[in-house]
Design a protein around this nucleic acid. Structure first.
Lengths: 218, 218
DNA sequence: CGGCCTATTCACCAGCGGGTGACTTTACCC
DNA sequence: GGGTAAAGTCACCCGCTGGTGAATAGGCCG
């Protein structure tokens, strides 16, 4: 059999099968990334010791050794995501001026939607949170809630909501709507008759949320 | 060993283990109900041929025979739920007068939230819809969307939304918020800092949604 | 009684999941 | 060089899952 270009063996390095690197930190990192990727791609259903090990290209035993099992791995991923809101929802106001508290929440809804739409992993975790309740998951949700509260506090400046407005409840409703729409978009591409595929669809959705936010805080 | 009261055998009937009824319709019904119950209690994760058979107290083979497998059972449950909105979201206006389109949507939000909060099965299915996309699930979501649209159409009377309002998008946002809050309430008991346990908490949430609905359609 | 149809169960398979103990291989250090 | 500890792999075990083909048990009818 004549060796084709693809079959020729590289003279210096033979990258055909990455043999074990024997570097704990790196292997640990590969397991971690495999876990993240698996979670992002298939959700918590596709998440298991065997699957992670397969994807990381190492023995599952290492997951137990380095992370103390799946729970530990989840914890690690969760901790890594603790500052997600701060890292993914920008605080500069991109040239827009926020004149009212309603404008502020409108902007938050828009930025939050963008951030979620761009992050499959976080979307999967949102779904996970609804499917079961475990300490890890609860912690992640808490961290997100705190992050959002901080965002508002930092961006608020001197803006204040109108008297008598239940900001906690109103903001929760806004965030809830955004999350639900983003999640539904992924799996079904629409929600309650509203298509959620194209960028244009999203424009529609976001401006509806924006309208409600502005109106509620008027 | 002296027989205790619990161990004594009933003279007439021995209900200790309900022996097979040999009634296809009834067995079919038991499987159906077992499926519903399992789904309602543990969500789609707890849903499997073996689990259903165990709960129904019969052999799993019967699930294949009578429903053509799990998919068929899901279909049956789904079909049964096709008219859910119509059946669970009342159309009488309970003494209240709906003066504006905003009032109408406010009322829908309230009734829809109540209906969902009272129905564990439907809540689980909502979560399921976000977790994976399959034909069955898509059909259920469609049916619900249609049901809601019908509700609005029937209750609307002569009420009309203000010109320029994107009703489809605005209504989707309202429904989305309600759904997300109900689901989050079940698993974590709160959402984005808003507690969702007591009836009072729900009053807060619902009036926030209501305020937004009214304001958006003002 | 015998025969038949049907509801129901049984026994079994292959596959995959989590989990663990013992083994091999490599690097490093004296 | 030898030795030791860490990195990595292997070979299992167990329990459960989905799925199937054959056997059984009970009612009904002639």
């Amino acid at each position: 059999m004549i060796a084709t270009a693809a079959e020729t063996v590289e003279p210096a390095a033979a990258p055909e099968k990455e043999l074990p690197v024997r570097d704990r930190a790196q292997t640990q990192g590969r397991i971690f990334q495999a876990g993240r990727a698996l979670l992002a791609e298939g959700g918590f259903q596709a998440f298991g010791v065997n699957a992670v090990a397969r994807k990381a290209g190492c023995d599952k035993q290492l997951i137990y050794r380095y992370f103390g099992g799946l729970d530990g791995l989840v914890d690690a991923i969760g901790e890594d995501l603790a500052g997600w809101v701060t890292q993914h929802v920008p605080e500069d106001q991109g040239g827009r001026f926020l004149l009212t508290y309603g404008d502020l929440m409108e902007r938050l809804a828009e930025l939050y939607a963008d951030a979620l739409r761009a992050d499959p992993l976080m979307r999967r975790i949102l779904v996970w949170e609804l499917s079961e309740s475990s300490p890890h998951i609860a912690r992640m949700a808490d961290a997100r809630a705190k992050g959002i509260a901080q965002w508002i506090e930092r961006m608020r400046g001197s803006l204040t909501p109108p008297k008598g407005a239940d900001t906690v409840a109103l903001n929760a409703v806004i965030i809830a709507a955004v999350q639900q729409l983003v999640m539904a978009a992924e799996t079904s591409g629409s929600f309650a008759g509203l298509p959620l595929k194209s960028q244009k669809d999203w424009g529609r959705a976001v401006s509806a949320v924006a309208r409600m936010a502005r109106a509620a805080y008027a």
